[in-house]
Amino acid sequence: MSQVEKLYESLKKLQEPKGYFFNPDKDLVFDLLRGLLTNKERYGYMSCPCRLAQADRDKDRDIICPCEYREPDVSEYGACYCALYVSKDVLEGKASKVQVPERRPRELMAF
């Protein structure tokens, strides 16, 4: 089993009981998980693959996956910013995914 498949299985077991499900688009999910592994190698932590990291754990703390914005985004939009995680309703096709706007405060981006 590849590293990304191991990550997929371990996160699935961990996150589903909490109500967070992987996007049914498995190609996208594996892309994003590869992004997380790349960022883990680069920075030492799994910084969000869809946000520009600052290579500083403290500055990036709020976007270390699962980011602090996942909970409000999934409850409001049915998906996190990356669409790595979706709600049960979205997974089961009862709700449609929308493009999630950036909830992160600009001052945390520091650029």
């Binding site: 693959p49 869809c50 990356c82």
Partner: peptide, 11 residues
């Protein structure tokens, strides 16, 4: 784009 972002790859 970001090299790690799936949506960028889809674009």
């Amino acid at each position: 784009a970001l090299s790690t972002c799936g949506h960028c790859r889809n674009t």
